[in-house]
Design a binder for these strands. Structure first.
Lengths: 359, 359
DNA sequence: CTGAAAGCGCTTACAG
DNA sequence: CTGAAAGCGCTTACAG
């Protein structure tokens, strides 16, 4: 009785049946208020904590969700994990992590493994170019709205529009977009958005890092200075990572950001504000996406759940992104931000601050 | 029988008892070889996958480990999670993630929650300044060797020595160390190591980012250019993140890295090689650390485990770190790396390549 | 409102 | 080498 009290211990101590204890504790209202109170007190007194294994065995539900990040090396992984963990905890679920080790083929295996471990459902953040395999268990997919089967995600296209419009509004007319993989839906949407936002007036071209590296080796030059010579004054990267690389390469070429050339990123990674110039970028509402993904999963798992954790009305598939203007972007040939301001990270004090565009 | 076959289904199909099926499948050798084979075949034929819930209930063991990163925002989190997940999977365990939301106080709560969820043990990567609470369940702590209760970790002190010695060998005599928190054991060890490695000859001072930011606001200047004016030619940051910030600030001041001043980092974060100049840094063997932590936990959980996954002999508490020399470090007043080489990320072609120092 | 009973799927002494 | 039985801790119809 010392190690870990169970239902029977409570029942015995109170001279009632364990069925009654179970009913009282689960709050199904089949027990008199007074007895319920007594049972709750005794449970607390004994330090009762229900055995998930017992419950899982009898209900067939583990109350555990599996989180599969196909690309666990993704810099946003910590934020994903944190947001999902929080949303799941709030709903009374634990989070088991799976890893497909960057390999698209093992993604299904990773999912199966989590299911075998008893996960009630899977949250999947697929790798670029992955088709979502048929899985015969509840799944919520976080990818991009244009992906078939996507459950909820940031509106990457709209995020791209914000960037494109921002650059156009600053007065840039020649824009180079820096992407990594051609087969990433997320990147395709971001790039499509950027082009749309920039408008048909300007001239836009796209660089693919993996193609360049396949030819010239990892870490190779992207040839940005050459583009500047051809009149490109703005560089929009599909990730802060690549924006950082672009800034590095431009600075090494003796070009100044944003005095000579503007660079923008995507995702607002942790360090995006602490480099100089601080990166203009776009951010997703990870908490909201996580909550929606978990809510969707719960709806599949327990369709009769009483109070859905999230408003049905507010259940969009595409969560708007937010533009964050920092000092890496400015008008061409006219530096809006004297170098003194480079470390100013408070967006509200920046001249060209734009609000969130919930298009 | 269609949804998911269980032991009894196999037993029934073969006309044997489920006890025998269980014994055969668990390979305890109490069953004739022939019957065992039949059972294994039938199990495969039926697509049998054991119910973890049933097993957990009868054995009192969930075969799940809890991973608690006090600081889930830590840039190394993905690597930690991936390495631990892999090591655990290899040992037949799943990984449940916990989050103390950056708050030291809730760390114990996060651990308790994982225990309640049935985790057999906890892998804890504590936040700076955390005392490890008494937890009455198996725990493996990954912090730094000098922390009481540390189970296994990188040898941060020795990693620091590699950096310090590297800078001294390049000929630097005035070194500024850039730290974040004064109360981080990991940082204290790294800094102690750097000082030791640099030797008593040079002059060394330490900057604390949080102190500076407390005074001048987040993202404030660190005043590095001023230090350069006072003869400091080398800056050793305790993290690549801070090294990046230092490089940014120095470049903005018109100083060139490494022509005018040398900067080093710590941890070899993903992008450390793709910025320019590529960052000289130090890396831990995360896979090894994860394997050792899991092995230690398993030893606590199941002391009679037959084959320990890791050699007893090779069970150090402090796993050596490896120096990675890239182009951000060079001799003072003598640029070993013409700017053309800045993007050369193959360490073997760099003049001052040092091998791993397993001191 | 309360309780006796069966069962979730497995493992583990204990017999034979 | 094999099996009958009990039990892990819970939940869930079903009676009363």
């Amino acid at each position: 009785m010392a190690p870990r009290p169970n239902l029977s211990d409570i029942a015995r101590a109170l001279g009632v049946s364990s069925a009654t204890v179970s009913n009282a504790l689960s709050g199904k209202g089949r027990v008199s208020a007074q007895l319920s109170r007594q049972i709750a007190e005794k449970a607390k007194e004994l330090g009762y904590v229900p055995s998930l294994a017992g419950r899982a065995l009898s209900t067939g539900r583990s109350h555990v969700l599996g989180l599969v990040l196909a690309d666990i090396g993704h810099p946003l992984f910590p934020q994903f994990a944190q947001a999902i963990e929080q949303a799941a905890t709030r709903a009374g679920y634990g989070v088991l992590i799976g890893d497909s080790r960057g390999d698209v083929k093992t993604q299904t295996a990773a999912i199966d493994q989590l299911i075998e471990r008893g996960a009630d459902g899977i949250i999947l953040v697929p790798r670029h170019g992955t088709r979502i395999a048929e899985i015969n268990s509840p799944v919520a997919v976080i990818d991009t709205p244009s992906t078939p089967g996507n459950t909820v995600s940031a509106d990457h296209w709209q995020g791209g529009r914000l960037i494109g419009a921002h650059l156009r509004d600053l007065g840039h007319t020649r824009l180079a977009i820096i992407g990594l993989h051609q087969d990433s839906n997320v990147q395709a949407d971001r790039i499509g958005g950027i082009r749309t936002g920039f408008g048909p007036e300007g001239s836009v071209r796209t660089l693919w890092i993996d193609a360049l590296e396949a030819a010239a080796g990892p870490g190779c030059e992207l040839g940005l200075a050459e583009l500047v010579r051809h009149g490109y004054t703005a560089f929009a990267a599909v990730s802060d990572i690549h924006a950082l690389r672009a800034v590095s390469e431009l600075q090494r070429s003796g070009l100044s950001v944003p005095a000579h050339v503007t660079v923008t990123g995507f995702d607002d990674l942790h360090w995006a504000r602490s480099i100089s110039p601080a990166l203009t970028t776009v951010r997703m509402d990870m908490e909201r996406i996580a909550r929606l993904a978990v809510a969707d999963l719960l709806l599949q798992i327990e369709p009769d759940r009483i109070a859905p954790p999230v408003d049905e009305a507010a259940r969009p598939q595409a969560v708007p992104m937010e533009l964050i203007v920092r000092s890496s972007s400015a008008s061409p040939h006219g530096n809006l931000f004297p170098s003194q301001d480079n470390n100013n990270t408070d967006p509200d004090t920046l001249p060209s601050r734009e609000g969130t565009n919930n298009a």
